[in-house]
Design a protein around this nucleic acid. Structure first.
Lengths: 239, 239
DNA sequence: GAGTGGTCTAGACCACATA
DNA sequence: ATGTGGTCTAGACCACTCC
């Protein structure tokens, strides 16, 4: 089957916003009219508008209507795709990778707990440097359980790992828990990110979950101060 | 009227998880049974479970059931309440504040754009130091438009500003856009956060929106390296 | 008062997981 | 084959905004 109706409607409305059919700060048609026009029930339209709201495209006011957001949710990497594939588009150039380490071993205690593994469940360990426009963009340190994705080889990590996941392994990402902090540059950072010892490093530690709830990756990603990276996300109240 | 049913159900289920009636890793009753037991329709139960999913309490698998998450979403300040009121509970001690600056003036260009203001719309500017357990916790730099919240005085900022908003002014927060980065310690940081010049600072810049979509605050919050603060949030795919 | 979005229902059908 | 959650409907009633 094709995609559910509410997803199709999300795409239609996004498109109309992009084409300035619905203008920022202006009202959308009301839910009943949209439902009639799109040939679905009002509840389905509402579901679409709710998701568009959570993604920062519109907001709805009871008694008034639904409005296109003025200051759009650009520069967002709130996508639960793990890496920074969302950001890469805005950086102009493509992301290339240099695999520094590709190993297999038993997990440390932290990795065991994060990935809900037994101490005898082996994991892959990958370190790779991400490069954009010839500049070091981030240093990734990733652990993956063989239980979930066996038969990896280092070549996979030269391209987009998340694309490989989706198309080759049919694994779908459900979300992630991210912890951000400011750190001092260590030896790795100085070597690969070309950071000075006094440069602050933005660290993003994430545990990524599949749609079925299994934790499937823990990674620690460090970003250099040089290009003054910011990590932006939307936090919209659920209702 | 009281709260909507789906909110009440969320509270019931949260309570049952807390009381180990529903155990981590175990299945909840199916949606039909829950609906019957709670005296609502299945759609309403589903709405509650969806929100619990987005908040990290449970996850649902089509064809299988709904499971309580094993590694709970603790240590989360993903709440769109603006400040770090969510975190304060876990730090043991209460949060106190020292108001460093309370002023009123016309907005800079950045503030104008963030808050969708005209250059003649005045704003409050507040700088305050947040202290937890006698240690500097964060340095806040906040701008608020008089258009939305007039008649402020500096005493309000000694307590919980967001509580004041909700109870005294009936303003409801709808969400926020946050940008995190790692910065070098400047003069303010060294003076108030007792940071060394080489300490990295975790900076959180946020634009907070009301439920009706109006931007209502921009603030830049800086956190010292000393207690190694991490900023954690959940990023769950919308569906 | 008229129009809007928010909640809720009772039921239907479908996609998927598990056995 | 059975049971589960996901989608969708047509309609109802309510809360709210704005004129």
């Amino acid at each position: 089957m094709s995609e559910p109706k509410y997803v199709q409607i999300i795409e239609v409305i996004k498109q109309r916003i992009k084409e300035d059919i619905y203008l920022p700060g202006e009202m959308l048609p009301n839910q009943n009219d949209l439902a009639t026009e799109l040939g679905v029930s009002r509840m389905t339209v509402k579901k679409s508008l709710d998701i568009l709201g959570k993604d920062g495209y519109v907001y709805s006011k009871r008694g008034a209507g639904t409005v296109v957001r003025k200051r759009m949710a650009h520069k967002l990497n709130s996508l639960p795709i793990g890496g920074y594939d969302g950001l890469s588009k805005e950086l102009g150039g493509p992301v290339t990778s240099q695999v520094i380490k590709f190993a297999i071993h038993f997990p440390s205690l932290e990795v065991q707990q994060a990935l809900e593994l037994d101490k005898n469940d082996p994991v892959y360990e990958i370190r790779r440097l991400r490069i954009v426009n010839g500049q070091p963009y981030g240093l990734e340190h990733t652990f993956l359980p063989l239980k979930i994705i066996p038969d990896l080889n280092s070549d996979i990590f030269l391209g987009s790992f998340y694309q490989f996941l989706h198309h080759d392994r049919k694994l779908e990402i459900g979300g992630a828990q991210r912890s951000l902090s400011a750190e001092k540059a260590d030896g790795y950072d100085q070597k690969y990110l070309k950071s000075y010892p006094t440069d602050p490093i933005l660290q993003v530690k994430q545990i990524v979950y599949l749609k079925d709830g299994r934790p499937f990756e823990i990674s620690i990603n460090r970003h250099p101060y040089a290009q003054h990276h910011t990590y932006t996300y939307l936090d919209v109240k659920h209702n």
